[in-house]
Amino acid sequence: MVLGKGTRLLAGAMFVVFMLLVGPSAPGGALFVRSLPIGAVKAVVPNRVMTWNICNPCDVSNIDRAAEIATYAPQVIGLQEACARDVERIRDYLEVFYGLDYHVQYGTVLQDWGRCGGVPWSPGGFGQAILSAAPMTDRVNVEYPDGGSEDRGYMAVTTTVGGRSVRVFNTHLAQRQQETIRAGQTRVLAAAVARHDRAIVLGDFNAVPESPELSPIWALATDTDPECRPVPTGPCEPTTDWHSKFDYVFLRGFAAREHRVRPTPYSDHHMLHTDVEPKVRR
Rank of each mutant, 00 (worst) to 15 (best):
L3F: 15
G4A: 12
L10H: 15
G12N: 01
G12M: 01
F15V: 12
F18S: 12
L20R: 11
L20N: 09
L21H: 06
G29N: 02
F32Q: 01
R34T: 03
R34I: 06
G39L: 07
A40H: 01
K42H: 14
P46Q: 15
M50D: 00
T51R: 00
N53H: 13
N53E: 05
N53C: 11
I54D: 10
C55S: 12
C55R: 04
N56P: 10
S61R: 04
S61C: 00
A66S: 00
E68H: 11
I69A: 03
Q75G: 12
A82G: 00
D86L: 07
V87R: 07
V87L: 01
V87D: 02
D92W: 09
Y93S: 15
F97Y: 10
G99W: 10
L100H: 08
D101T: 10
V104Y: 10
Q105G: 07
Q105E: 13
T108S: 05
V109P: 06
L110E: 11
Q111F: 10
Q111G: 13
W113Y: 12
W113F: 12
R115D: 11
G118R: 02
G118L: 00
P123A: 11
G124M: 03
G125D: 04
F126S: 00
F126P: 01
G127V: 00
A129K: 08
A129T: 06
I130R: 03
I130T: 02
D138W: 03
D146L: 08
D146A: 06
G147M: 11
S149C: 13
S149F: 06
S149D: 14
E150Q: 07
A156C: 06
A156G: 11
V157M: 04
G162K: 01
G162M: 12
G163Q: 06
G163Y: 14
R164V: 10
R167E: 10
V168N: 07
F169R: 01
H172E: 03
A174K: 05
Q175G: 08
R176L: 14
Q177F: 13
Q178L: 08
E179K: 04
E179P: 10
T180I: 08
I181P: 02
A183R: 12
A192T: 04
A194Y: 11
H196E: 06
A199H: 03
I200D: 00
A207H: 07
V208N: 13
P209V: 01
E213K: 09
L214Y: 02
P216A: 12
W218T: 09
A219I: 14
T222H: 09
D223H: 05
D223A: 05
C228E: 10
P230M: 06
P235L: 07
T240F: 02
H243P: 04
D247M: 05
F250R: 02
L251T: 14
G253R: 02
F254W: 03
A255S: 10
A255T: 08
A256Y: 06
E258H: 11
E258P: 04
R262W: 07
T264D: 03
L272V: 12
T274E: 11
D275Y: 03
D275K: 14
P278Q: 04
P278H: 14
K279G: 09
V280I: 15
R282Q: 15
